[in-house]
Design a protein around this nucleic acid. Structure first.
Lengths: 141, 141
DNA sequence: TTCACAAATGCAACTCATTTGCGTTTATGA
DNA sequence: TCATAAACGCAAATGAGTTGCATTTGTGAA
């Protein structure tokens, strides 16, 4: 994802375009896995804005649907760029490697769930996260 | 769920049986929705053990698979009794009401996911959580 | 029933992710 | 170019969850 693209995304989301915001979005859009705030800061390195700024930025991106919060770890939040469409994650319980998996019948499950519910009118969001053991870690044992 | 039943569950899970542990498990097993530590403490009222004790207890229950951690809120962990088998949740983004929904094709999605992955050998756990607007809140608007 | 030991508990202090307040700087669009 | 709203940095606060340690209690063997 090139910088100009990031700027467009920010503008479309009515976001003020600053260097920091471009940098963060750029990193997220290139990342193969959801990232924590700490990881973002580290990747940004010396040119990183204040942690607080990253938090506020992500909050703002979340509002506009530019990023999404992934509930894979209970200790810290992970964020990923939404532009790649819907997919899910398998996380290794040994080495914490994360692999992405695409839709795989979840949309069907969603419709089903709504049909079965008698209290809900709509489903606006969902998370489907898997935990397992990767082949590497399986081999080690 | 009656007290004796809770004791049995604890014993089967090689858990030391104490009053506090019975109380917590009893409350969880009666609850219609996953509960936070704070909520548990409040429900236990005056006879509640120290918060730290509740944390350690739940940690221990998690180990033995007696309870499960539900990632519905990012700010605090929710716990639910596993004895009722597998199901999922829809949480209202307005009023935070939680409804339980049963399996609805998720197991199929799981098999599918594993088949598509080329890095993972097994899936040991999964979460499927839905967010939406309940009928009540829809009406209000 | 008794006894020793491992496990549970309480308390205080700590860690660490995330939030808030506030004064300053910067992007935006008129 | 200028006014204003938003972003930013810093410091301090919050709040969930953890850790160390001394004390109590449940458990299984004698």
């Amino acid at each position: 994802m090139i910088k100009t693209k990031c700027k467009d995304i920010l503008r479309n989301g009515q976001q003020v375009v600053t260097q920091s915001r471009c940098d963060v979005l750029c990193i997220l859009s290139k990342s193969q896995h959801p990232m924590s705030v700490a990881e973002l800061k580290q990747t940004l390195g010396k040119s990183s804005p204040n942690v607080v700024t990253i938090y506020r930025m992500l909050e703002s991106f979340l509002d506009k649907g530019i990023v999404r919060r992934v509930p894979l770890r209970s200790s810290e939040a992970l964020f990923e760029f939404t532009g790649f469409g819907d997919h899910h994650h398998i996380s290794c319980i040994e080495c914490h490697k994360i692999e992405e998996v695409d839709d795989c019948a979840v949309s069907g499950a969603l419709k089903n769930a709504l049909k079965k519910s008698n209290k809900f009118a709509s489903i606006t969001q969902h998370t489907f996260e898997l935990y397992g053991v990767c082949k590497e870690c399986t081999k080690k044992k």
